[in-house]
């Protein structure tokens, strides 16, 4: 009797296992379908020429060279602002603010509110503040700074979490060795948190790369090769949106551009993971 019940339980467990496996396979199917569709639509248009030349004929001809460069510039400006500011803020939150204090609660609330603001609001703010009030116009700088405002809370949260995961033992050992607070942060805390911080960079740049509305209002729509960061420059996501929605017959190049964007995002992820691993290796 009991054995039979156990057998039944075992069988239902196996059945459940199979169901879960099937569901997992289905989730795997989604990225496969997505990439397959992009490959079928976009691969014929993809080539060295496509990557190196500027778009002509509203994106139907030429390539995406200038768009790719603009995207990298915008991303560089964004990360250049977010990394020092975000790390500083996360270190301050972890190292200098007493948990539960009024300051801590105020900062956390601000971050939560900022993190929940829809991106289009940042777009309008960036257009008003950076492009109009500060006179930066539609430019790579406006776009990068607006994106920085948008992804800052996301990055601070990720960095803060990985900093908090540093074992208390390390802290106590550092204190016992009379290590200065900064020395501890630089030599021990930051290297141990590096993989988490790298993940923060991936999340931040992923969100920045995906953004269209924000950049349409700030970095702009111009497909010329950017000469300086005061020039307007179209990013990959904006280019895809425009080709898919406003240009008749643009779907092939839109798919090819999407493939490039996908490769770029995966590349950044691989780079960040590798960097995180290296900096941890150095500390050990």
């Amino acid at each position: 009797m009991r054995v039979e019940a156990l057998d039944r339980a075992g069988r239902s467990d196996r059945l459940h296992g199979r169901w879960m496996g099937l569901l997992a396979m289905l989730t795997l199917l989604v990225p496969l379908l997505l990439i397959g569709e992009l490959l079928v639509d976009g691969l014929p248009a993809l080539g060295a020429d496509f990557l190196l030349s500027a778009p002509t004929d509203a994106g139907l001809g030429g390539g995406i060279g200038s768009v790719l460069v603009s995207t990298l510039w915008v991303l560089a400006v964004c990360l250049g602002v977010v990394l020092p500011l975000g790390l500083g803020c996360a270190l301050f939150l972890v190292e200098h603010v007493r948990a539960g204090s009024r300051l801590e609660r105020a900062l956390q609330l601000t971050l939560d509110v900022l993190g929940g603001v829809p991106s289009i609001v940042f777009g309008l703010f960036g257009n008003r503040f950076f492009a109009v009030e500060l006179g930066l116009g539609f430019s790579i700088l406006s776009g990068g700074l607006t994106l920085a405002c948008m992804v800052l809370p996301l990055f601070i949260r990720a960095a803060e979490q990985s900093l908090r995961q540093c074992p208390t033992g390390y802290r106590q050992a550092a204190a016992a060795l009379a290590l200065s607070r900064w020395g501890f942060a630089r030599r021990i805390l930051l290297p141990t948190a590096a993989p988490g911080i790298a993940l923060g960079v991936v999340l931040a740049s992923g969100r920045a790369l995906a953004e269209t509305a924000v950049l349409l209002f700030t970095a702009g729509y111009v497909t010329r090769w950017p000469g300086s960061w005061f020039d307007s420059g179209r990013t990959l996501a904006v280019h895809i949106y425009d080709l898919a929605m406003n240009v008749s017959g643009g779907s092939t190049n839109a798919a090819a551009t999407a493939l490039v964007l996908l490769v770029l995002a995966i590349g950044i992820q691989a780079l960040a993971v590798a960097l995180g691993r290296i900096s941890r290796g150095v500390s050990a």
Binding site: F138, L216, F217, G220, Y221, V222, R224, S232, D242, N246
Partner: peptide
């Protein structure tokens, strides 16, 4: 001459 086109 530079002509910048911005959509919106």
């Amino acid at each position: 001459v530079k002509v910048d086109v911005q959509a919106g």
